[in-house]
Amino acid sequence: MIEFVNVSKQFREGKWRGRKNNVQAVRNVSLQIKQGTCFALVGESGSGKSTLGKLLIGLEKPDQGRVLFQGCNLHEAGREERQRLRRDMQIVFQDPYSAVNPRMKIRDVIAEPMRVHFQYSAAEINEKVKQLLEAVGLDEKAGEQYSHQFSGGQLQRITIARAISIGPKVIVLDEVINSLDVLVQISILKLLKRLQQELNLTYLFISHDLHAVKWFADEVAVLDKGEVVDFAHHVKDFDQLTHPASRRLIEAQLPIVTQQAKEEYPVKKGLYVS
């Protein structure tokens, strides 16, 4: 479904002693992501993970190489094709509070993409917002509230509802559980797994939490200084990777939260686990 072909991206920083400093964020990256799978990108901070996610959804343009979605070059498509592609690909960011307009009611936050991409009536939008809130485990009354009235976990559910509101095929998950406490992280991952199965979604999961990656992802690539340095076709094989960057990540893991915690805090339809 998705292919990165020899993709490179460089950013220019401010001047130092009269010279512009160029930073190579991504260097000659080639990856393939299969439909209906969860592909994880892991690496230390600054390794280029988020840049690849932004290149995929069109927030950044590669300096070299191609980003293909179902065979279409995302950065050479015409206007109408780009509009369709934007509908097919969405992103959920790490910080849900900065990703939501605090002056908008939650129903308008979720409805905004539908108003942009579809010509639904007000009644149709209201019904779809109700269904989306239910799908992510929130009550209909949440639509009448504002972002400051929710916890981080609840608000991340709202951003997920917004992301799936227009029926995307691919969702970039950029450190989506990083700012949440451990038990809420589990509930969000279970929600995302259920939605993936129900909606046949493809995920690009950006994270440095190896416990989450091992539980959630199918394949994993390790980035270091903008390059793919290691790869596992099956995430269960991650601990067998040998590159120094992979070993640093493996050795830096904290002890895992017990399996009992995962079983005691399941995600159930209509229930939010706090």
Rank of each mutant, 00 (worst) to 15 (best):
M1Q: 00
N6A: 08
V7K: 09
K9L: 14
E13D: 02
E13H: 12
E13W: 05
K15G: 01
R17H: 04
G18A: 00
K20L: 12
V23R: 07
N28W: 13
V29G: 02
I33T: 11
C38T: 15
F39E: 12
A40M: 01
L41S: 01
V42Y: 12
V42P: 11
S45I: 15
G46W: 07
S47Q: 02
G48I: 07
S50D: 00
S50M: 00
T51W: 15
L52A: 01
K54N: 12
L56N: 07
L59Q: 02
E60Y: 14
G65E: 08
G65F: 08
R66Y: 10
V67L: 02
Q70N: 03
C72D: 14
H75V: 04
H75S: 06
Q83A: 05
Q83E: 11
R84Q: 13
R86E: 03
R86T: 05
R87Q: 13
I91P: 05
I91E: 00
V92M: 09
F93E: 02
D95Q: 06
D95A: 06
D95R: 10
P102I: 10
M104E: 05
M104Q: 15
K105T: 08
K105A: 08
R107K: 15
R107W: 13
V109I: 15
I110C: 04
R115L: 12
H117W: 09
F118W: 05
S121F: 03
S121V: 03
S121W: 13
A122S: 12
A123H: 12
I125F: 06
N126Y: 07
V129N: 07
Q131D: 14
V136I: 04
G137M: 12
D139K: 15
E144T: 03
E144M: 11
Y146Q: 08
S151H: 03
S151I: 01
Q154A: 04
L155W: 01
Q156G: 09
I160H: 06
I160S: 03
A161V: 02
A161D: 12
A163K: 01
P168Y: 03
V170S: 08
I171D: 05
L180E: 10
L183Q: 07
I186S: 05
S187P: 01
S187R: 07
L191D: 06
L191C: 05
R194P: 03
R194Q: 14
L199Q: 07
N200D: 12
L201C: 07
T202D: 03
T202P: 06
L204K: 01
F205C: 05
I206E: 02
S207M: 11
L210R: 09
A212R: 00
A212F: 03
F216G: 03
A221F: 11
K225S: 04
V229W: 13
V229M: 12
H233G: 10
V235G: 01
K236C: 04
D237T: 00
D237F: 00
F238R: 02
D239C: 09
P244F: 05
R247G: 02
Q253L: 07
I256E: 14
V257D: 08
V257H: 05
Q260E: 15
A261F: 14
Y265S: 13
K268D: 09
K269G: 07
K269F: 05
Y272W: 14
V273W: 10
